[in-house]
């Protein structure tokens, strides 16, 4: 870690447990517009927090406040126990930040840019050069190391900005739309890299891509109109879907009337949806509140076996993030 300047002498370094980021009652006003409204959350070491929300929800503003670029109007940000407002230099030295749209000094070469960042992060001489070579290799930038940044493709530019954020091996990474504008292969590479680093660091990433939250993140935080509407694990968010926990059963039998009558009278279900396809009947059983889906599934199987109806498909639906995202962000707007 680079040394902190005298400016921050006396800054505490102790975080509670493995807590790396703590955001407490954060507010941000832009003149009269409230961009972030009483936001609180924490991120531990080993967590990858997916920060999602509609455009203009306050994701980038929050990330800018976490990284110390913007001062909050109210509330505080603690980085590894260090107050960002009181000890900005020490707190910033713990963070790697990839801003939105990956801004870079376009008149520099990739190598010169990364060396500048290494020097600013407190590395000197051969150590700085070693750090540069390390990230060039890690972010697959070796073949463009001497190329000017303004001649690079968007993917390379993004990776260069990503490289600057990890050059000092920070404990905390804040990534604002890290895969925006990348092709599918590049997205895969970056996600792999984030997952790898997520084992030892605390990572906050914002994204519009909900599948990214499922594949990369261990925690998810949804904000709408600057307010937190969900904070938990991705599976918990999916479970909020109206369709989550429904039992879906496909039956391939000619006794359609009997099947309908039997399943319409099945116990412990709120709703039964029957879709009569050409060959296979598809039945959706929505369990009553508090009734486990497994119990309904077993009951359905038992019914089919008793009547000799061949089961073509059987599953418990998990719901989709897109459904929940739409539901909770829209309901927040309406309220």
């Amino acid at each position: 870690m680079p040394e902190a300047g005298l400016y921050n002498a006396g800054a505490p370094e102790v975080a509670a447990g493995g807590e790396m980021i703590r955001v407490e009652n954060l507010f941000k006003w832009y003149s009269r517009r409230l961009a972030v409204n009483d936001l609180s959350f924490s991120v531990n070491r080993g967590d990858i927090l997916g920060f999602i929300g509609p455009n203009g929800a306050g994701k980038s503003t929050t990330m800018r406040m976490i990284t110390g670029y913007l001062p909050p109007s109210l509330g505080c940000v603690l980085i590894n126990g260090i107050d960002m407002a009181r000890f900005p230099i020490k707190a910033k030295s713990r963070i790697g930040y990839l801003p939105e749209n990956a801004p870079l000094y376009s008149n520099m070469s990739v190598m010169a840019f990364l060396k500048f960042i290494a020097l600013m992060r407190g590395f000197r001489g051969r150590t700085a050069l070693g750090k540069v070579n390390e990230v060039l290799e890690r972010c697959f930038l070796e073949n463009v190391r001497h190329q000017r940044i303004d001649t690079l493709s968007k993917g390379y530019r993004h990776r260069t900005c990503f490289a600057q954020s990890i050059i000092h091996d920070p404990d905390i990474l804040v990534l604002d739309e890290p895969t925006d504008g990348l092709d599918p292969n590049q997205k895969r590479e970056i996600r792999k890299l984030i997952r790898e680093m997520g084992r030892t660091k605390a990572i906050v990433l914002s994204t519009h891509i909900l599948e990214e939250v499922e594949t990369v993140c261990s925690k998810v935080l949804v904000i709408s109109d600057g307010k937190k509407v969900f904070d938990g694990v991705p599976s918990g968010l999916k479970a909020m879907s109206e369709r989550a926990g429904d039992v879906l059963i496909g039956i391939n039998s000619e006794d359609r009337r009997e099947i309908i009558e039997t399943f319409e009278n099945i116990e412990l279900c709120d709703k039964v949806e029957i879709n009569q396809g050409c060959d296979v009947m598809s039945i959706r059983l929505c369990p009553m509140k508090g009734i486990p889906a497994e119990q309904i599934k077993l009951a359905a199987v038992r019914l089919c076996m008793q009547n000799g109806w061949p089961i073509d498909a059987l599953s418990i639906t998990q719901g989709t993030l897109a459904d929940v995202f739409h539901k909770i962000t829209e309901s927040q707007k309406e309220s």
Partner: peptide, 14 residues
């Protein structure tokens, strides 16, 4: 204009 000010002020310097 280029947004590099955000990068610059996220570095540990005053």
């Amino acid at each position: 204009r280029m947004g590099t000010i955000e990068l610059l002020f996220s570095l540990p310097l005053t």
